[in-house]
Amino acid sequence: MNQSYIIGAIVFWLGAWAANEWLVRRQTGTRFGSRAISLAVPLLFGISLLVLWEGLVRGLDVPKVLLPAPSAIWDRLTSSLPTLWADFRQTFLKAVLAGYVIGCGLGFVVAIAIDRSSFLKRGLLPLGNFVSALPIIGVAPIMVMWFGFDWQSKAAVVIIMTFFPMLVNTASGLAASGHMERDLMRTYASSYWQTLALLRLPAAAPFIFNALKINSTLALIGAIVAEFFGTPIVGMGFRISTEVGRMNVDMVWAEIAIAALAGSAFYGAVALAERATTFWHPSVRGG
């Protein structure tokens, strides 16, 4: 009877694959139809992955400590919502959001501040590029030592992690406007600030949004990893590390599901804001 789970899952997977192969070859002609197909195909793939996971775990009798089935994770998720909500509030609503806003804001402001000095730009940007490639996450223990166990230290880690991508991207975005356009602004006798506000910042928007998107993932990672180094008894990173120790792997997966949901929603919100504000850009227009 165990084998029936495996066979069922594999059959479902093959069926979904065949359906996908069939779907992508269809020409609907209408815009709505092609849109629906491009939505349905990844959805079907995701569902088939879940079914395969469930079937294999059940069929092969994988112990729960190793890999719980999706249904078990869902059970745990729905039964411990209050704990998950408290962790989410501590990690995401306090540490991540505060750090993200301050870090991105600082990066943006510094990029504008050094914009007029070519000396500072030449000095800071190579360093910023260099620092972006470093394992900044390592400052987490130092920040925990300086700012204590509560969310402030996590926010500090997030600030440091998000600052440099924002700085580098904004700076290269400010250099993105063309010569012709800048010359046009000059012929209008516009001041530095007018050129900045009306031409260069809008031209930099795609770069800035790129940094915002990169940072949305970095911020969550930074806050969670920083909690491994010490935290009050609440928070997503804390829950993950303690429940791993107690071998409650289904709780860990529930926490990860929440983190994934929060991360995707965060990214999605930034992407939507990008669509709304940089509707003129070719990558958004699809032109």
Binding site: V41, I224, V252, I256, G263, Y267
Partner: peptide, 18 residues
């Protein structure tokens, strides 16, 4: 069509948490 969206989505997951 099916894998690419998930590859991108997988990166919005704070994978280091796992």
């Amino acid at each position: 069509k099916s894998v690419m969206p998930w590859v991108i989505a997988s990166q919005t997951i704070p994978i280091l948490a796992i």
